[in-house]
């Protein structure tokens, strides 16, 4: 596998528990940014970065518009905005129509990042109850990136990774306990 320049993790129902388990085991000196897009209720805004930052020594912050994407930092998509990656490796926010009934939509971040990082992008789709992320993973594959899903059989809600497995040529299917090791080896 090529060097990883960005890891994006998308998830919906049942994915927070996975993050809380995996994040502490990720080496804080990884050489790429971790971008997290999780569906959640609008309004509970600063809570997720706060919750996650208690679980890692890496810096965890909400992604801000025009912010430069820095390796070794964990970025969380703000609630109620789509998070996009620009060619110059900064973030944009977008308040356009929901995609797959979701804002932020995992597809939007996966798709815009796919063109930017190309072969050096790794996207991981976790547990969830809708099919957001599936089209995004397709685009990631088209641009030569790596598509990974949580094992649907061990996901709290299997639908999302299951859909991805059905429609996309997935590179790896991981159980929760194997995720951190996989990520640590990406550097």
């Amino acid at each position: 596998m090529e060097n990883c320049e960005a890891l994006i993790i998308g998830g919906s129902a049942g994915s927070l528990d996975v993050l809380l388990r995996v994040l502490p085991a990720i080496r804080p000196d990884i050489k790429f940014p971790v971008i997290i897009v999780i569906h959640r209720k609008h309004g509970a805004d600063s809570l997720l970065p706060e919750l996650l930052s208690g679980r890692t020594r890496m810096e965890v912050k909400e992604a801000e518009e025009k912010e430069e994407i820095v390796p070794g930092t964990v970025y969380v998509a703000p609630s109620d905005y789509h998070l996009l990656v620009e060619l110059n490796r900064t973030f944009s926010l977008d308040y356009s129509e929901k995609v797959n009934y979701s804002r932020p939509a995992i597809d939007v971040t996966f798709q815009t990042a796919a063109e930017v990082y190309k072969r050096k992008l790794v996207c991981l789709l976790l547990s969830g109850s809708n099919s957001d992320g599936v089209n995004g993973l397709k685009t990631v594959k088209e641009w030569g990136g790596t598509a990974i899903i949580q094992n649907p059989e061990t996901a709290q809600v299997a639908f999302m990774p299951q859909q991805a497995k059905q429609h996309v040529k997935i590179d790896r299917i991981l159980n929760i306990e194997d995720m951190a090791e996989f990520i640590n080896l990406l550097s």
Partner: peptide, 9 residues
């Protein structure tokens, strides 16, 4: 305009 958003539109 920000390119990624515009291109997506």
């Amino acid at each position: 305009y920000s390119k990624a958003s515009l291109k997506r539109r």
